[in-house]
Simulated assay, not measured.
Amino acid sequence: MKRRLPTLPIFLLVMWLSLNDSLAPGQIALGVLFAGLVTLAVAALRPVSAWPRRFDVAVFLFFDVLVDIIRSNIAVGSIIVGASKRQPHIGFMKIPLELRDPHGLAVLAMIITACPGSVWAGYDRESNVLTLHILDLQDEAAWIRTVKQRYERPLMEIFE
């Protein structure tokens, strides 16, 4: 098993000292105590630890998601202000997933929900099928391609 730097307690200690605006020995001792107790308390909430394996893929995924969020904002904005004269085709769709890592699924949920016009509406663990609500569902195949190729594949490289 690889030893990793304990990031949570270090982060909590730094935050404690920053918020108290002091490096006094008493504040450091309280910060260490606080960081240790909180780390122990939340350890039971997170039995499976996540450690991304491919940071280079994560960086590219970040920029892909950023571009998709900007595009989605423009598309939803044009629907709302009426720039598009046609009515949006609101609908639900199901996408079969290969991704099973709980951390990867959580990131996928955040990505999909962060893009305006799409919402993670459900996930069936047994069949591994994702349900999405789409504001303007014109091309279901394009949505499946986007989720599987732009998001799911990189997340599998990162987390599995």
Rank of each mutant, 00 (worst) to 15 (best):
P96S: 10
I70L: 10
P116I: 04
I134T: 01
A43R: 15
R53V: 02
G104C: 08
F60P: 03
F60C: 08
S118E: 06
L108V: 03
F60E: 05
R86D: 01
L45M: 13
A121C: 07
I79Y: 06
S84F: 07
H133E: 01
V57T: 14
P52R: 13
P52T: 03
V59T: 12
L99P: 01
L108W: 02
F55V: 13
Q87W: 07
A109W: 05
A109T: 06
Q87L: 14
R125L: 01
F60H: 07
I70G: 05
G117P: 08
D101S: 13
E98N: 12
D124F: 02
H103T: 04
E98Q: 09
Q138S: 07
V59N: 06
G77M: 09
L61Y: 04
A58T: 02
E98L: 13
R71H: 08
P102E: 14
G82R: 10
F60M: 07
D101E: 03
I80M: 03
T131Q: 15
W120Y: 09
F60T: 11
F62Q: 06
R71C: 08
H89T: 05
W120T: 01
I80Y: 04
G104H: 07
Q138V: 03
P52W: 05
C115N: 11
S84M: 13
A44W: 12
H103P: 02
R54A: 15
H89S: 13
A44Q: 10
E98K: 06
V81F: 12
L105F: 05
I112C: 06
Y123P: 00
L130H: 01
R86V: 01
P116F: 12
H89F: 09
R86I: 01
A43D: 15
L108A: 01
G77D: 02
D64S: 08
I79P: 00
A44S: 15
D124E: 14
G91I: 00
L45F: 11
T113Y: 13
L137W: 05
H103I: 03
A109C: 13
V119Y: 11
I134C: 08
A83P: 00
W51M: 10
C115P: 03
P102F: 01
V57C: 10
N73I: 05
R46Q: 10
S127D: 04
K85G: 02
V119H: 09
Q87D: 11
G122D: 11
S49E: 07
F62D: 02
I112W: 04
F63A: 00
P102W: 11
S49Q: 12
A58V: 07
A50C: 12
M110V: 07
I90K: 11
L45R: 09
V119P: 08
V129L: 06
L97A: 02
T113K: 08
V76P: 05
I70V: 13
V48Q: 06
I80Q: 05
V129K: 10
F55R: 15
H133C: 05
V129T: 13
R46D: 09
R86A: 05
T113V: 08
L97P: 00
I111K: 04
P116G: 05
R100T: 08
L132T: 01
I69T: 03
M93R: 04
S72W: 10
Q87F: 12
S118P: 08
M110T: 06
P47A: 04
D56T: 14
D64N: 15
I74H: 10
I69F: 09
A114S: 15
V48F: 14
R53S: 13
